[in-house]
């Protein structure tokens, strides 16, 4: 039996969460501030949101970012699914070692290095930088995350279900698609979400690998942030935070509900 949390435990949790959330709360609150100054509360207002709607460049950047995010997350999830299968079931050959090495190296690699090396690849290949180069780069960045997320779920999957299907005459790939995939689907969806969010968020790799006409939202935000605090940034940030938080919490609740059904 676990002992309950002590006062010290509770205090650490409360302080820790306060530290994590205070800046976000402040940011959201000031996106509704009528005053341009951070320290002056000028009353509740949605004027920054209205201003946002008229910011053509910002809206274009949002559109580019969403498209890059969807495409790169899909690619990273598909390749990551294959990588996870190979890692969990591929035995212990040199191929697996190379794959695990590559995956964990990308996971911790400083983004500046990854961005620079990808840029040099595109320059060497003579590819013009733009939408597709950012998309491919983001897929590379997020591949490690999708692999790890799917692999964790796949490792705990009861293989005998798939074997039973095969014993009944189902070809292996079909057994995987019809038996395994539906069970690990929430983890695959979570992996896609993770990849999408990371892509939405990335400044460094996009800056290196993007070109004219493919300015992503973080790139636009960064160039504005350098000029100083602008309440419009608070507004766009609040929208992003709301979007992502809704998605994550929904995904969490779906997984919780599935977990309660004794499917396996």
């Amino acid at each position: 039996m676990r002992r309950g949390p002590s006062a010290f435990n509770l205090a650490s949790i409360v302080l820790g969460l306060a530290f994590l959330y205070a800046p976000i709360v402040i940011l959201v609150a000031y996106s509704f501030n009528a005053s341009r100054l951070v320290t002056v509360w000028g009353g509740f207002s949605t004027r920054w949101y209205v201003a946002l709607l008229h910011d053509r460049q910002m809206l274009d950047a949002v559109w580019v970012t969403l498209r890059v995010g969807i495409l790169s997350a899909t690619a990273a999830t598909l390749v990551g699914l294959l990588a996870a299968v190979a890692l969990v079931r591929g035995g212990t050959g040199p191929r697996r070692t190379a794959l695990a090495g590559g995956v964990y190296a990308t996971l911790v690699m400083p983004e500046v290095i990854l961005g620079l090396s990808l840029l040099l690849l595109f320059v060497a290949a003579g590819l013009p930088r733009g939408f597709w180069t950012v998309t491919a780069s983001h897929a590379t960045l997020t591949l490690a995350y999708t692999t790890v997320a799917i692999q964790a779920r796949l490792a705990s999957f009861d293989r005998s279900l798939e074997e039973a299907a095969q014993d009944l005459g189902c070809p292996p790939w079909k057994a995987f698609a019809l038996v395994t995939l539906p069970v690990i689907a929430p983890a695959v969806a979570a992996a896609w979400m993770l990849a999408f969010t990371l892509s939405l968020d990335d400044l460094v790799i996009a800056s290196f690998t993007s070109g004219p006409g493919a300015t992503t939202l973080p790139m636009r935000l960064y160039s504005q942030v350098r000029l100083g605090v602008d309440p419009k940034i608070n507004a766009v940030s609040t929208l992003l935070i709301g979007l992502v938080a809704t998605g994550v919490i929904a995904a969490y609740l779906i997984q919780q509900r599935r977990a309660r059904v004794p499917a396996e």
């Binding site: 299968v85 591929g90 050959g93 990808l118 690849l121 491919a136 292996p172």
Partner: peptide, 30 residues
């Protein structure tokens, strides 16, 4: 079965070779 599932490694390995390992050689060269 082992060699079959090993095939799943091919696409991710190629991806990492093209977009991760090879670019590092370019950085070293540069």
């Amino acid at each position: 079965r082992r060699s079959r599932t090993g095939l799943a490694a091919v696409v991710p390995l190629l991806w990492l070779a093209v977009f991760f390992a090879f670019p590092f050689m370019l950085v070293a060269k540069l």
